[in-house]
Amino acid sequence: MPQHEPSTLLSTVEIIHWLALAFMALVYTIRLFWLFSFRGTKDRQPPGNLKQSTPMKGAIYSLGNVAMPWAMESTRRGWLFYLSFVIFHLGVVAGISLAFLSSLDRSLLEIPAVSTVMMVMLGAAFAVGVGRIIRRIVTPYLRLISSPDDYFSVILLTVWFLVGVFAQAYIAGKLDNEMFLVVYLLNTSFFLVYVPFSKISHYLYYPFARFWIGRTLGHRGSFPYSRG
């Protein structure tokens, strides 16, 4: 049950969005070539306790660490922060899905249940984003380590979540102004172009960082690690 027909403006913005995506993919490809242009290292040391771990075990454990809040003391003790991390990143998934589905298969987003879930996810991520901005501003050690990019990135995403809520509402027929979706897609386009140059690109490097450290420490037997 389509609620709105896309205007010429919206169609143009959608094209910009796809171009931005292509740009991001290109820059990311270059970034990966750049990362791999540095020499790799070999673990020459003999394996540690093979009964305890192997490089592959260590790497898998390391990669899965993000989904094991009980594994690290920092996530175990800071479970609230971990929860906020989950909500924030689910919001990112919802926001990206919204951007693509709004062009590819808007009817899916028009299903009331889907629409509600999307708005809740984006709304919750927005709330977490606001909390993160405040946390970064008021916490002395975070202020010390934060760069303008750190502030801008979290503000950019938080605004993006909020606009996403309105864009989704527009798609669901609850709002009547197409500009919500236009602004959202423009926001997404900027986001896609900006991301490779900002700290938001951490997700590109994260799997490599985790894999490599997990492989080395797995080789030595210290990943997966025991605690008490």
Binding site: L35, T41, S74, S201, H202, F208
Partner: peptide
């Protein structure tokens, strides 16, 4: 600079978990 070192250099998001 090795790949591993560079990944650690570019991977920090200043989340403060450490």
């Amino acid at each position: 600079l090795t790949r591993q070192v560079v990944a650690s250099l570019v991977g920090c998001v200043h989340c403060g978990m450490c």
